[in-house]
Amino acid sequence: MRKHSCKIEAIEVEKVFSADSEDEVHALGPLNLQVQDGEFVCLVGPSGCGKSTFLRIVAGLLNPTTGRVDIGINPENPTPISMVFQDYGIYPWKTVEGNIRFGLEISGISKSRTKEVADHWLERMDLTAFASSYPDTLSGGMRQRVAIARALAVEPEILLMDEPFAALDAQLRQLLQDELLTIWQKEQRTVLFVTHSLEEAIVLGDRVIVMSSRPGKIVLDQKVPFERPRSPELRAQSDFNEFKNELWLCLKGEVEHYLERVNSVEGKIGSNNEG
């Protein structure tokens, strides 16, 4: 096996979706990206630019159409990669505890150890009182904590997070961001984190990657200049906002491009309706 200098290396990755060869969607790339071991990388970009698609390729749920992604893992780890999905993906037929245990059960870890780990995460995510509730009876924030606990409980080397906090209110979002930072700073996993919020990307990431509108390519790959450990107060600093504006200028162009396309489609629909 080739020795990897980095944890994740994407080389000329492209993804084209085609139901039939007639209407193809060029969703992603070509994209080149290197992520070092233990790095926290945030991906931002306009809607539909292929962020989720890229994460799914890394997770092994999709294959690239061209190019490759190499991932260096410890072969003894039963669950080297885990993912927190955009829409939670937790199971309505499992209790909170059952959901958290899920990844552990899949990897065949002993019952007693599973129980221990699950209890730990229940407590850490403040869900102990709801251990035997079904997700249907939980709030959105609680469900998201279940999804995060489920992904972290298996101690993955690489954690893929697809807009995990998007559906949460500002306070809860900040709370979970801080919790994630604490966990990450303690355990130093490699994280690929997709978000629509630049602020979130800067608070959490070592690097922020701005992607173009579809097909998503990297238009900016910027190291975040703030020291760790970062405190929540960082958000109020003036250089934080300066950095954020700098990124926004770059992202703005792409979002405008995206909006133009949406509007032109709407224009077409409008004119069709008239005609």
Partner: peptide, 27 residues
């Protein structure tokens, strides 16, 4: 599909996907 994918992302094999996802989901 999202449920199946979540299980796949944890490396579940066919039997595990059936036992944990497809069967309870279909029940």
């Amino acid at each position: 599909d999202g449920y199946r994918e979540a299980a796949l992302s944890f490396g579940a094999n066919k039997w595990q996907i059936f036992r944990h996802v497809l069967f309870p989901g279909a029940l």
